[in-house]
Amino acid sequence: MTLSKRASWFLVAVGVWSWVIWPTFLRNIWKDDRSWHDGPTGFFLVHLVLTVVSLALGTAVGWLGIRGLRGGTRAAAGAAASGSDLVDSSR
């Protein structure tokens, strides 16, 4: 499968956005009075899980975007070298 450059950049942007937003969100939750009562509360733990899952998904999506950009560059270079307009996405 080949991603367009536009789609690849969008995926990279979503990955970066996740890493900008979610750590800030967790910092704000950490400071909230509902987060601690003789240890972490359910409120904090639910938001911690939400943050961890969102960062994992953001990382995966960003990685796919980077792979799409790198693959598109290699495929375009290979097509130009061979003089073909077809791109082999099996590599």
Rank of each mutant, 00 (worst) to 15 (best):
L86H: 14
V14C: 05
F10Y: 09
L45C: 07
V61Q: 06
T51S: 11
R67A: 07
A79T: 02
T51E: 15
G71M: 05
V61E: 04
L64D: 09
T73P: 08
T59C: 14
W30N: 13
R34D: 07
S82I: 11
A81P: 01
R67S: 08
S84T: 14
A7H: 03
A79D: 00
F43G: 13
T24W: 07
W9M: 14
D33G: 15
I66K: 12
S84W: 03
V16H: 09
F10V: 02
A75T: 08
T41S: 05
A77Y: 04
R70H: 13
L55Q: 00
S84Q: 02
I29T: 11
D88Q: 15
V12D: 11
F44P: 00
D88C: 07
L55K: 05
R91E: 15
G83L: 06
A81Q: 03
R74F: 05
W22V: 15
R67Y: 06
P40A: 02
W63P: 00
G42R: 11
V53W: 02
W36F: 11
P40C: 01
L57R: 08
A77I: 15
L69R: 08
W9G: 12
S4H: 12
V14I: 03
H47F: 10
S54E: 11
L86D: 08
A75V: 06
G72C: 05
W9A: 12
N28I: 05
L57G: 03
V12I: 05
S35C: 07
R74H: 04
L55M: 12
A81C: 00
F25P: 01
L57S: 13
A76H: 15
L86T: 06
I66E: 03
W17R: 07
W63F: 06
K31W: 04
V61Y: 04
S89H: 01
F25K: 02
A60M: 08
S90P: 15
V52T: 06
G71I: 07
K5M: 11
P40L: 09
A7K: 08
L11Q: 15
S8P: 03
T59V: 04
T59I: 10
F43V: 01
S4L: 04
P23L: 13
V61M: 04
R27L: 02
H47T: 14
W30I: 05
A77P: 09
G71F: 12
W17Q: 10
G83Q: 01
V12P: 00
L69K: 05
P23W: 13
V87P: 07
W36Q: 08
K31L: 07
N28C: 02
R6P: 03
L11N: 13
A75Q: 15
A79F: 10
L48Y: 01
I66L: 12
A60P: 13
L57N: 07
D85C: 13
